[in-house]
Simulated assay, not measured.
Amino acid sequence: MINVRFECEILRASRTRLAQLIEKSTYEILFKIPDGFNNNIIWQIGHCITSQQRHIYMRSGLPMYISKEFEDSFKIGSSPDSWKITPDVNEVKHLLIDTVNHLESDLESGLFVNYEPFDLPIGFQVKNHVQALQAANYHEAEHSGQIFTYLKLLVKE
């Protein structure tokens, strides 16, 4: 049996670590694109938030806790080159934790009833909101690895 609270604790721990990284990093580090890559640390973090919202809320037929502008800035296929406005670092940092708070509350209240399944590029089908949460944790771990790689590359410069 899947422990949804534990999955939320993992998500919160990952997000807290990213929020701390934002607090400790300069604007230049957060927004600089390392050589050989097409996005930056703030895009990676915003992308994690956007994917979690799309995969859990949108596929459940529920409104997301992010704006359409935020979603467009960080959804798959976007990049800093496509940004119409520069994202607000404080908004990104706020959403890291706020979206976890909402998720925990919404899970407790039984808000998730319907779900539109989708296939992950790694060959699995996500069939419900709980699996979407598990997939979000996996996805965020991948992007956290990228973020800390970027950080090492950028701090050396």
Rank of each mutant, 00 (worst) to 15 (best):
H102R: 14
T99D: 01
E104C: 12
E108V: 00
H47A: 02
I122K: 06
N114Y: 07
A132P: 04
G123M: 05
N39D: 08
E104I: 15
V100R: 09
Q20W: 06
V155M: 08
I22M: 03
E71L: 13
H55S: 09
N101S: 13
I122E: 08
E23L: 13
I2W: 02
T26A: 06
G36L: 04
V126M: 05
S73E: 09
V89H: 04
E71R: 13
E7P: 01
T16L: 12
F6W: 08
D81A: 15
F37K: 09
L103I: 04
N137M: 07
E91V: 11
F112Q: 04
E91P: 01
L154Q: 05
N90Y: 07
G46W: 08
L111P: 00
P34T: 02
H129C: 10
R54W: 09
L62A: 10
A141R: 00
I85W: 01
G61L: 07
V130Q: 12
L154M: 11
H55G: 09
E104D: 09
N137K: 10
E69H: 03
K75N: 12
I41E: 06
N3G: 02
N38E: 01
P117S: 10
N137E: 06
K68Y: 06
V130I: 15
Q53A: 03
S79C: 02
L103C: 10
A136I: 01
M58L: 14
A132H: 09
L151R: 14
H143E: 02
N114P: 01
V4D: 08
L103A: 11
Y138P: 00
H102Y: 15
D35W: 06
H129E: 13
D106Q: 15
I29Q: 07
F124I: 03
